[in-house]
């Protein structure tokens, strides 16, 4: 292959320079065309279809924002349900995830601990879904091993107190933590690596206590990552469908309502699931936009 190429070059060097081909000038961006059209066809068109039908009048035609707001107000309970589970799991995820990341990053002894936590987080953050729900049925379901052990061990009957059910709100929260904590660990580990030991030494040389260090140096540096992580976790929980559907297919949250509407909407006439999906896209877009902005800010102190 390369031999023939060499001969060809040699020929050219002999003076038989081929006449310069006339080239039509194509803008450099043209090379992006396949990629852009793929995104257009399989992401933007569906999104446009959702928004158009979400804002459409009865029968799917025309433009009537009132349908959109009607659906949103009649399903406000689903939005509140989604917001509540997202908020609670995001706050808990940020707090516990940051603590775990800090503990793993600063641990001295088993050298492999940090890599293990990072690798496991990579796996668990992508878990979710039906399988995860099954795992927790066996642990904290009415006949679960954990439920039994808590009863035998400390005499606390989880299901007699009424607040906990694996198919209820706190059950969802428990299951969501299985992917929210690892996701936060992944987001915040680089930020914790960015905390330089020298800053701590400087702080204590200037007479600062541990508390001063955290209040004046540590937390301000971590704050953008933590806030960004909060938004990412919120969006993540808000859009989760499979997990909550497998736990309770009657759950009053936006994704389950959308799937109900879609399966029921055989003729394609109803605008309800599309209005719900539009509302969902808006919520996620705001959260993700905030996350991307904060990530830029957070990367300032991170080692590259």
């Amino acid at each position: 292959m390369s031999d023939t190429a060499l001969t060809r070059d040699g020929d050219r060097a002999d003076g038989t320079v081929p006449a310069p081909r006339r080239r039509v000038r194509i803008p450099a961006a043209a090379g992006l065309l396949p990629f852009l059209s793929f995104l257009f066809l399989f992401l933007l068109l569906p999104a446009y279809g959702v928004v158009k039908k979400g804002f459409g009048g009865e029968g799917g035609g025309g433009f009537s924002p009132s349908t959109f707001f009607d659906v949103l107000s009649s399903e406000s309970k689903a939005f509140r349900g989604s917001a509540k589970v997202s908020l609670v799991t995001a706050v808990l995820g940020v707090v516990i995830g940051t603590a775990v990341a800090y503990a793993a990053a600063t641990a001295q002894r088993p050298k492999w601990l940090r890599s293990l936590v990072a690798a496991f987080s990579g796996v668990a953050a992508n878990m979710g879904g039906v399988i995860l729900a099954f795992l927790f049925f066996t642990l904290l379901g009415r006949q679960g091993l954990g439920t039994k052990l808590i009863d035998e061990g400390v005499g606390y009957q989880l299901y007699d107190t009424g607040w906990f059910d694996i198919s209820g709100f706190w059950g969802w929260v428990t299951v969501y933590m299985y992917f929210q904590i690892p996701l936060m660990v992944l987001v915040t580990l680089p930020a914790i690596d960015g905390l330089k030991p020298a800053w701590r030494e400087a702080s204590s040389n200037l007479g600062g206590t541990t508390w001063t260090y955290w209040r004046r140096v540590g937390l301000p540096v971590l704050a953008p990552s933590m806030l960004g992580g909060f938004l990412l976790l919120f969006a993540n929980a808000f859009s989760a469908y499979a997990t909550v559907y497998a736990l309770n297919n009657q759950a009053n949250v936006v994704p389950v309502k959308i799937s109900f509407g879609l399966v029921g909407d055989v003729g394609g006439k109803s605008s309800e699931p599309y209005a719900l999906a539009t509302g969902m896209i808006i919520v996620i877009a705001v959260a993700m936009g905030g996350y991307l902005l904060l990530r830029k800010r957070a990367e300032r102190w991170q080692p590259t």
């Binding site: 990629f35 852009l36 995104l39 992401l43 068109l45 569906p46 999104a47 446009y48 279809g49 959702v50 158009k52 039908k53 969006a235 808000f238 859009s239 469908y241 994704p255 959308i258 799937s259 879609l262 909407d265 394609g268 699931p273 599309y274 999906a277 969902m280 896209i281 996620i284 877009a285 993700m288 991307l292």
Partner: peptide, 23 residues
Amino acid sequence: LTVLPYVVPPIALAAGIAAFYRA
């Protein structure tokens, strides 16, 4: 552009497929 799919979660994408490609 490559992170845009984050904004359209799977369930919304499913709605979009139904909305656009079914018709």
